[in-house]
Design a protein around this nucleic acid. Structure first.
Lengths: 202, 202
DNA sequence: ATATAATTTGACCCAACGGTCAAACTGACC
DNA sequence: GGTCAGTTTGACCGTTGGGTCAAATTATAT
């Protein structure tokens, strides 16, 4: 009985890193439904069939847990940005690909739900580090928009407004998105990336 | 000294209702920077130069406070929707006017910040009531979009996607908007309403 | 087998926070 | 100046939940 439960909750993963990832995934899952502050360490532990004390073996604090959740999600978006920046025009294709991966990253594995969390819940140092990355991502998107406008691919609009509007719409998605709903993560990513793209097309 | 402080914090308002509104406004202001769960009743009281006990004289609980904040914000948006529904085409004008007032409502007086709050923080009955209104608003926006598409004013797009994308972008605004920034609330409302409108124009 | 390291447990601590309340204060009206 | 309703105070309570830790258990290496 003990080994059955163990098998079920562990699968065949072994390394500490993998375990951390699994915890982060469950955190995202939980964050879909409840705010971070409302989320108790005990809840997260329960969800993973582990004890609270054991959870603290993997993450030193609740804030740290949140921070790593943020970073995991951000890494996906930044990787997508890096790829987009290496691609060649048309900018429409670049933007669409970037948005698709960004949205999918936000929705997939539920990690994106941490976006909704107030940055104030992070330790100052962590917040600073995260915000820096977030700004870099936004800058990257804005740069593509500007380039696309100059190239005449995109309609003229205030790049700040366009960036904030689009990325805001994406950031809000975890709030209403349910994986069991009508769209799979990639399907939703496709549809919304397309919509956002067309919303700036000339 | 006592009367000076009193004068400063009261101004010339007298009725309980006014005091409640003021509390709600400050709550919104505070919610701009911190999550609701992270927001302590003591903080809100401090911000209003009142004691925690006194705060409970006006609102029976923290949840109730949040609920009324939500409702106040929603009332503005619903009023804008009602007006829009009574207006006559072109739909572009209807949508733009609706979005302008909706956005302004969300940004003005800071009440919109409650949008970021997880609905889970509301008592179930309150949540139900709020969600019903929220759905009505979304339906209204979608209906205008659909009508505008049929009339050929708006480009063809999935109305659900368009609605979620636009309103999501609006809902996210309180997260980054700062009244001391480059846009006044109405200015931001103008710019973003225009952007969203053009993003669906045929 | 056995020693050693990695992991897990659950009882425990304690500060923080939502909420209560009796008593005090204020001002208006007679 | 008395009285009464409306308002404010601040001390107080109970629970909740983040975090700790020594001891127990389980893997790994020899």
């Amino acid at each position: 009985m003990a080994n059955v439960a163990r098998e079920e909750r562990w699968g065949d993963r072994t390394s500490v890193e993998d375990r951390r990832d699994e915890i982060l995934r469950k955190l995202g899952l939980a964050l879909r439904d409840r705010g971070f502050a409302a989320m108790k360490m005990q809840d997260i532990a329960d969800m993973l069939n582990m004890t609270k004390g054991n959870l603290y073996y993997y993450f030193p604090s609740k804030q740290d847990l949140l921070f790593h959740g943020h970073m995991k999600c951000m890494a996906i978006s930044l990787a997508a940005l890096a790829d987009a920046q290496q691609a060649t025009p048309p900018y429409a294709r670049m933007l669409q690909a970037l948005l698709r991966r960004h949205i999918a990253g936000v929705l997939e594995e539920a990690n994106g739900a941490v976006l909704l969390t107030d940055l104030e819940d992070l330790a100052p140092a962590h917040r600073q580090e995260y915000v820096a990355l977030r700004d870099r991502f936004e800058q990257g998107v804005r740069a593509i928009l500007v380039a696309g406008m100059k190239a005449g691919e995109f309609r003229d609009a205030d790049p700040s407004v366009a960036t904030l509007a689009m990325l805001g719409g994406v950031n809000w998605m975890p709030k209403w998105y349910r994986p069991e709903g009508r769209w799979s993560p990639t399907e939703a990513a496709d549809r919304f990336a397309m919509f956002f793209l067309q919303s700036v097309l000339a």
